[in-house]
Design a protein around this nucleic acid. Sequence first.
DNA 1: CAAAGACAGTTTAGCACTAAACCGTCTTCC
DNA 2: GGAAGACGGTTTAGTGCTAAACTGTCTTTG
Lengths: 138, 138
Amino acid sequence: MALRLSVLAWLRLFRVFQKIDRRSVVHLRTLGLSTAQFDILARVGTTSGMTQQELADRLLVTKGNISQLLSRMEGQGLLKRCQDRRSNTLALTEAGQDLYRRAVPFQEDMIMQSFEGLSTDEVRTLLRLLDKLDHSLR
Amino acid sequence: MALRLSVLAWLRLFRVFQKIDRRSVVHLRTLGLSTAQFDILARVGTTSGMTQQELADRLLVTKGNISQLLSRMEGQGLLKRCQDRRSNTLALTEAGQDLYRRAVPFQEDMIMQSFEGLSTDEVRTLLRLLDKLDHSLR
DNA sequence: CAAAGACAGTTTAGCACTAAACCGTCTTCC
DNA sequence: GGAAGACGGTTTAGTGCTAAACTGTCTTTG
């Protein structure tokens, strides 16, 4: 792979990521959520009963980070920690589930809109290439 | 564009971005640089004489952020602020230029390696699709 | 059984970032 | 010429993140 082409591809990847990410941040803010909070809401919403460590592993962040974020979200009444032996299992509260049911489709819509500039075939190709790239990255 | 496909593409995009970004962070740390510092070093290294506001606009961050980062980097002797009317123009010091000359090829190499899993044609296709997507994002 | 280690979670220090308030200086325009 | 505003930069409060130290509980094993 040529240097110039790789660097261009990386810059473009970064730029696209950044643009969609920013949209997402603005979009989620209307629901009072940050990206990090949405990620947690979405994860715990689909898979209840996870421990904090499991959640951290799935989101690829540290358990320290999760600990802090959960404290705030628990304070806002979105979820509950239930102690179980030496670990905590996590579950959304009623309010959390309610927000989950609104936020997930809302966010999915935003993503769909972001990809409107490409045809189905193009998205399929993009997906295939990104998959290949992902796997080659160890 | 279908919902499921878009969401998959976004997750994949995010994952790939994250993986390369992490590599980059680890890689740059061996030079004692954070991503933010490298970005500034690279920008100021190629375009000397920018103001802080211009730099902020190019990197798409706030001038407040730039102000803080520059203070640290100036403290480390990597660059200088030269007051000019009511703005500051920026330039690398000797040490900064030296680091620049080492860091940029170093980083480019890392990027090239990251794309090794794809053929030249595949990278070209990826680039074309990302470009199209980028332009469609307003 | 008691010491050692493993493991889940919390805390702390520090960087990167934003938003908004703030401070100076230059410009404009009555 | 002086008030009003624009503009560049700094500061501050608050979020998100990491790394590493710390706390407490379970498990292993000599």
